[in-house]
Nucleic acid binder design. Structure first.
Lengths: 162, 162
DNA sequence: TATTGTTATACTCTATAACTATA
DNA sequence: TATAGTTATAGAGTATAACAATA
């Protein structure tokens, strides 16, 4: 994971990261931004993802586990801790007596909205280091590689497409 | 965090992610690759980072905590669990009777080498979705934004520069 | 006195297994 | 019987605070 000679698009004298290092570093930087913003609201990454997922859904514990990639027991505990903080609510499913529906409370919705808008500002500020033209190019290239990767994995990158 | 109209660099008909979504998604994908490769070797992300940091250093517990962003007590426990698995070794510092030097064992070095070369192959395969020319452009743009961000934070992106 | 590291304690997060209630 | 959810248990990972040993 070392350095490499300067490439076409870099200003004279600037060193280049290897493609692997560039993506790995970028991933860490973005992940750390999210982590720090979440921490300011006393949220972990997984709690933030929980609230995020609930913004446009009222899933059962089981569905939530699927969305977050967690076992049902882990999901149960996660929801329990969020409920104790007043961020989410549980209610029995009207159609299946075994199921529980999870939803955001007003407090949970406020918290996730604030955290995510701050995170968006962080990313915008980070990208503001590039001129508009390069930013557009970067976004387009990243979109292309993500679309190709999602297609390979059989995942819908743009929900709502048929 | 929605979609946006297609941009300059996208093929006709392809939808665009917003810049924020593009970076966030990219970060998740890369992070998940690292997590899964690490898990195949029964390593967590933090254990993997520990081994990675030790590849070219024999730091004290304190220095290690600084490098990993952990409290000394957390670092002590992390090293203890890695030592129990035979991946790292502790030895008293010859120059300071209070300090402990941490180093990779042969087993630890093998493990981190294998995991990181697999991770590098994952990233390469991921980037292979783009033609060489675009890959170079992407890497250069990411390097530029990381360099600018690191400079702003007062961090050395290229260790060894003076 | 200050610093280094460990330990005690507490909490989050995770999984497996056993259990209850419902289908 | 099968499924949904909770609970008991175990372990990693984290921090704060108290401690021992060394500087």
């Amino acid at each position: 994971m070392g350095d490499e000679p300067a490439g076409r698009t870099a200003p004279a004298g600037m060193r280049q990261l290897s493609p692997v290092d560039a993506l790995a570093q970028l991933s860490f930087v973005v992940h750390r931004m999210l982590e720090q913003r979440a921490a300011e609201h006393d949220l972990s990454i997984i709690q933030t993802r929980l609230l995020g997922v609930l913004r446009d859904r009222n899933p059962t514990i089981n569905e939530l586990g699927g969305l977050l990639g967690l076992d049902k027991s882990s999901t149960s505990g996660l929801v329990e801790r969020a409920e104790r903080r007043g961020l989410v609510a549980r209610e029995p499913s009207p159609t299946d007596g075994r199921s529980v529906l999870v939803s955001l409370t007003g407090a949970g919705r406020s918290l996730v909205s604030e955290a995510s808008s701050q995170f968006e500002r962080d990313i915008s500020a980070f990208l503001a280091h590039l001129p508009q033209r390069d930013r557009t190019t970067l976004t387009a290239l990243v979109t292309r590689v993500l679309v190709a990767h999602a297609a390979e994995q059989g995942i819908e990158l743009f929900p709502g497409d048929r």
